Amino acid sequence: MDFTSLHKTTSEGLCNLDPNPLEIIIQTYIHAIICVFGLIGNSLVIVTYIFYKKTKTMTDVYLFNVAVADLIFVVALPFIIYNEQNSWLMGRVACKMLRSAYSINLYSGMLLLACIGGDRYVAIVQARRSFGTRSRSLIYSRLICSAVWVVAVALTLPTLIYTEYFEERTVETMTSTVMCQLSFDSYETAKLMKVLVPSLQMAVGFLLPLLVMVFCYSSIMDTLLSAQSSQRNKAVRVVLAVVVVFIVCHLPYNVALLDHTLSLFKERSCNTEKVKLQVLAISRSMAYLHCCLNPILYAFVGVRFRNHFRQIILDLWCFSKKYIYSARSSRTTSDICISGLRSSDVSNKMSSFSA
């Protein structure tokens, strides 16, 4: 989320904060990679749940919703990049909707990851108490997901309301730039919202999920380490990977965002402001990267999902052959596809840490 303008008055006068062309090119390539891999990974999770593996547990429901949240953002990301580099040609509505896309993804995705941690804590640490009840808890998981989406939309309202599409003129150069960012009518509102919005983002979108995940996964690791199981070491590595990746992706951006927020209403030099914005941009790209890693950390780490993934590839290959080969060949490949789809049911009986 951008809390800055392209031109700002500092202790040195008017400061041009436009990123240089090289920064724009590098960010474009990084965001394109994030978009491609995020689109593929989260689409595979959604396709798997719709066509191959029904949502049978609370974690399944949470994983499906995380994939939907991440998919919303990676679909919006190319349009954000295009509009930022082309003076927001898509207009006012696109400005508000695209700026809100990351906020909704952040709040819903992070809270859902906390829910997954809580569900795994109940399933592993409180296994005896929860035995026989988790299969009847699907209705509760759907209600929790609905509540998460409502909270995410509510917390995004300030961004949606105060994000404006406007033209900023520079008197010295006699040029104008089309902007899409938070804009306020009064200094008091600006001071409140420019502190409130990033504070909510850090508190609800990072600190709360982090605390929940650290508590739940540390308890899970303690339980796993005390268990005598051949799969123990692998499960511990998965838990460590989930927590470490979350911290590595989101901690730098939240630290940079906190530093930037604390200095919003202070006078600072032009060079200092440029460095702060560069650090904020780099760390924000790292935070974006998490939406590509979620399918790997939470879904495809499990045996069932890997089998479903292979089955999707096989079915795509089969159906492509159906339209390439002759009628005789197509009948053969069609049979293979049908048998492949049926064989996917067998993998439902396999267990994984993510289920």
Rank of each mutant, 00 (worst) to 15 (best):
S283H: 01
W317E: 04
L293A: 11
A327R: 14
V238Q: 12
L341E: 01
V242H: 08
I336G: 00
V243W: 08
W317C: 06
G340L: 06
S343N: 14
C292N: 07
S329I: 09
V303A: 09
Q228T: 13
I313L: 10
S334C: 09
M286K: 00
R342L: 13
L316M: 06
R331H: 08
D259N: 15
I282K: 09
G302L: 07
C337F: 11
K274I: 10
L257E: 15
F319C: 03
L262C: 10
S320A: 10
S329Q: 13
C249T: 07
S320Y: 11
C337Q: 12
P252M: 02
I282G: 00
N271K: 15
L297G: 01
S326H: 08
L316T: 03
V248L: 13
V245G: 01
R328D: 13
W317V: 11
I247H: 00
A327T: 13
Y325E: 04
V244Y: 09
I282Q: 04
C249K: 04
S343G: 13
F246V: 01
K274Y: 11
A256L: 05
V301I: 15
Q311S: 11
Q311K: 02
R237M: 05
V301P: 00
C318K: 05
R304D: 00
I312G: 00
V236C: 04
E267T: 11
V245W: 02
V303M: 07
V238H: 07
G302H: 09
A287K: 00
C337V: 06
S344A: 14
F265G: 05
L262Q: 14
R284Y: 14
L257I: 14
C318S: 08
P295F: 08
R310D: 06
D335W: 13
K321A: 10
L240F: 08
F305D: 07
S330H: 04
A256F: 02
F309Q: 10
L316N: 02
R328C: 03
V255P: 02
A241D: 03
E267G: 04
C270Y: 00
I338D: 00
H290S: 04
V243G: 01
I296C: 10
I296Y: 11
R232S: 12
R306F: 05
P252C: 04
N307L: 11
S320D: 08
